[in-house]
């Protein structure tokens, strides 16, 4: 019996071969195939191509990694401009509205003088633990301020840490450019133009007063870390984006040099003070003192190394940076 609307030529009956004589030949064939697989996996070359069906196919994870495609979406991040330190977010609330699990919480910035809203976000909290990584926020954002990160090694034993605030969401544009070059190049011009328009409407430091960026220029380290850490932190603290970003594009020593220069700058800024506490105050970077430790503590656990980079290269760069910072201090 077949249902009437299926033509008979569209249907075929699977062969059961019930009447065949079974004397162990089927099992022997299976054993043969498994043995062939064993031989190929042991002596043959590993499975490298999508057409391969023989040879080992596993990736030895921490050492070997699969290439992550550009479109890969894990957790949302916010972008800021490398040159000016201005954040791209204008708190238009599009992402907060579309977010299916409702995990985005934005507070709009206000002009302290007039009390009028400014196209920038004062607070931006994202609950990473409830985020379902659907990517809608990045899709709807008219200013290309929110993007999906590629870093997936976010496991932590500290659950409240997964309510991520503005300081920890920020990444420079250059970082995003390295993980998704073509996707960024498609929107770059437009996004930058919109940013320039918005900057005009932002009085004072509103719109670039989050994270560890310094007013008036290049992003620098969080000087808020305690004394001993001050110098090393210079190299290590800001690396959330830039280190990885630079490391990918530039040659090794160039990276190291650049880092060293940055570290030296940081040291000069902080170095005027004798100990670290003033450093923290002196650093105009940090929005509030309360935020500072969080930001600082977050930095080392950051996904620096995870971006798929060679560890040793990173380490070398850091070492260079520390040395340069020390030299700079001594020089003063």
């Amino acid at each position: 019996m077949t249902l009437s609307h299926l033509a008979t030529e569209d249907v075929f009956v699977v062969e059961r071969n019930d009447a065949d004589f079974r004397g162990g030949q089927g099992m022997t064939k299976g054993l043969g195939i498994v043995f062939r697989k064993f031989r190929k996996a042991l002596f043959g070359k590993p499975n490298s191509d999508r057409a391969d069906t023989e040879g080992q196919f596993n990736v030895q994870y921490p050492e070997e990694r699969l290439a992550i495609p550009e479109a890969y979406r894990n957790m949302p991040i916010l972008l800021y401009d490398d040159a000016t330190g201005h954040e791209l977010c204008t708190s238009c609330f599009q992402c907060e509205r579309i977010c299916p699990p409702q995990v985005i919480h934005i507070t709009q910035a206000k002009d302290p003088a007039t009390g009028k809203p400014v196209p920038a976000a004062a607070k931006f909290v994202l609950e990473y633990d409830t985020c379902m990584s659907c990517g809608y926020c990045a899709e709807v954002c008219p200013f290309d301020a929110i993007k999906m990160d590629h870093d997936f090694e976010l496991s932590t034993a500290n659950h409240p840490e997964l309510d991520v605030d503005y300081n920890r969401l920020l990444r420079p544009v250059s970082y995003y450019e390295t993980i998704a070059p073509t996707m960024w190049s498609e929107v770059k011009e437009q996004a930058m133009k919109k940013l320039q328009n918005n900057i005009k409407r932002r009085p004072g430091d509103i719109g670039r007063d989050h994270g560890q960026k310094i007013k008036g220029g290049a992003p620098v380290a969080a000087a808020a870390t305690p004394a001993a850490g001050a110098a090393p932190a210079a190299g290590a603290a800001k690396p959330r984006g830039p280190v990885a970003a630079i490391g990918k594009n530039m040659s090794e020593d160039k990276t190291a040099k650049l880092l060293a220069i940055r570290a030296a700058n940081a040291a000069k800024r902080g170095g005027g003070a004798a100990d670290a506490a003033p450093v923290a105050q002196a650093a105009p970077v940090v929005e509030t003192v309360a935020d500072a430790p969080a930001a600082a503590s977050a930095a080392p656990t950051g996904p620096v190394a995870a971006i798929g980079q060679n560890m040793s290269e990173d380490k070398r760069a850091k070492l260079e940076a520390i040395r340069a910072a020390k030299r700079a201090q001594r020089g003063e």
């Binding site: 697989k37 064993f38 040879g55 080992q56």
Partner: peptide, 10 residues
């Protein structure tokens, strides 16, 4: 180990 190789694993 041997069962892994039969299943294309390591």
């Amino acid at each position: 180990r041997s069962i892994s190789y039969m299943q294309d694993r390591r």
